Amino acid sequence: MRTFRVKQWLAALLTGASLTLASLGAQAEDPFKVGFIYVGPVGDNGWSYQHDLGRKAVEKNLGDKVKTTYIESVPEGADAERAITNLVKDGNKLIFTTSFGYMNPTAKVAKKYPDVTFMHATGYKQEKNLGTYIAKSFEGRYVAGFLAAKMTKSNTIGYIASFPIPEVIRDINAVQLALNRYNPKAKLKIVWVNTWFDPGKEADAANTLMDQGADVILQHTDSPAAMQAAERRGGVYGVGQDSDMSRFGEKAHLVSVVQNWEDYYTGVVKSVMDGTWKSGDFWGGMAEGVVTSNNFNPALSEELKAEATKIIDEIKGGYNPFTGPIKDQKGEVKVPEGSSMSIADLAKMDWYVEGVEGDIPK
C-alpha cells in the first residue's frame, strides 16, 4: 500500500514538473523584437510615413511572433547613434535605420553588437551583420519627368531638393533625362532646402519656384507642403514624394512617386528569424513593386496616361532610364550609346546630366 502511494506521489510530481517546464518553455518563446529609426515624424505623409506602414505590415503579417517599436524624428549624427544603441539595449534583434545620415552611426553600433542584425536605408556601408536597401525612386521620377515635360506650359519645371547625396542627384538627373527626351525646351530649376522635413521651408521653396515661372513642382522632401502650395496657387501641378499625396491637391496632383515597403520588411524579418538572412545591397524598383507611379491626375488624357503606362511597363521589363548616350553638364559622354549605368555607378552619382543648370552644393 505504501509503495502504491509513493508511486502516485512520484507520478503527480513528474506531471507537475512537466507542466511547469512546458509553461516555462512557452514563456521563453518571447516575440522577436524589431526596431525602426525614422528621420521624420510618422505623420509626415511621406518618407517616414511609408516606412511606418511597412513596420505595421510586419506586425500584421507575423502576428504575436514579433514585436516592433520605433523612434521618430531622430536627427542624423550623434543622436542617431544613441537612439540605435538604446534599441539594442531594449532587446531588439533587428534594427532598420531609415535615412542616409544614419549610415556611420549604424555601422559604428553594428560593430559593437555583432549578434544584432542591422539594415540601413539608402547607404552603402555593409558588414556581416549590416545590410543596405534602397528604392529605385529614379524610375518613378523619370515617369514624373515625362508627365512634367508633356504638361508644362511655361517650360519651367521646379525641383525642391533636400541634400546633395547620390540618391537626390540621381533623381534630379532622371527628371532631366526625361525632359531632354520628351521636351528639350523645358528647363529644370532647383532649390536646395537642406532638410528632409520642414513644411515651412518646403512651402517657401515651392512658392519661390512658382514665382519664377515653374508650373510643375517636384520634391525630394517629405511633407505635402509643396503640393498644398501648388493647389493654393492654381494652374500648377505637383508631384508627390514617397506616398500618394493626391489627397493634398485634388487639382494640382499630377502623380506621386510612391515607395512600398510592406512586403520587403516582412520578408527581411522572416529571413532573420529563420536564419537565412545574409548581408547585401537591395535595390527595389517598379519590377519588384517597391516603386509605383501610376496614380495619375484623372484629368490627364487617356492618350497621355497610356504613354506613361507604357514607359512604366518598359521599366518593369528591364529598361534603365540611365541608358546612353548620356552627357554631363560639360558635354562629356559619361554613358556611351548602348550602355546603361550599373547599380554601383548609380550608387555614387555625384554629377549632373546635360541640361541641369547650376552646381551641386558642396
Rank of each mutant, 00 (worst) to 15 (best):
K187H: 08
D52V: 07
A214L: 07
E307M: 06
S301L: 07
T132G: 00
T122I: 08
I360A: 08
N129S: 03
L53A: 12
V353Q: 01
R5N: 14
G358A: 12
G40F: 05
G25F: 13
N45H: 14
A161Y: 05
H220W: 08
Y133P: 04
V66R: 00
P361I: 12
K187W: 03
S301H: 02
S162P: 04
M349T: 14
E250V: 14
K270Y: 03
E167P: 05
Y182T: 07
I134Q: 11
E81S: 14
I172A: 01
P31G: 03
A17H: 00
E288F: 06
A144P: 04
P184H: 09
E139Y: 05
P361D: 14
Q219D: 05
A110H: 04
M286C: 05
K153V: 10
F4M: 13
L218V: 07
G284W: 01
R55V: 09
T15A: 15
Y38E: 10
N45R: 14
T276C: 11
V353R: 03
V255M: 03
K270L: 12
G249N: 06
S301Q: 11
K56W: 08
I360H: 11
L130M: 09
Y265P: 07
V353T: 06
N183Q: 05
V335K: 06
K128C: 07
S18Y: 02
V168M: 08
Y49S: 13
E127C: 00
L13D: 08
L218N: 00
A347R: 10
A11V: 12
A226E: 02
E357Q: 15
M273E: 13
G123R: 11
K316E: 00
E354Y: 11
V356C: 09
A161T: 10
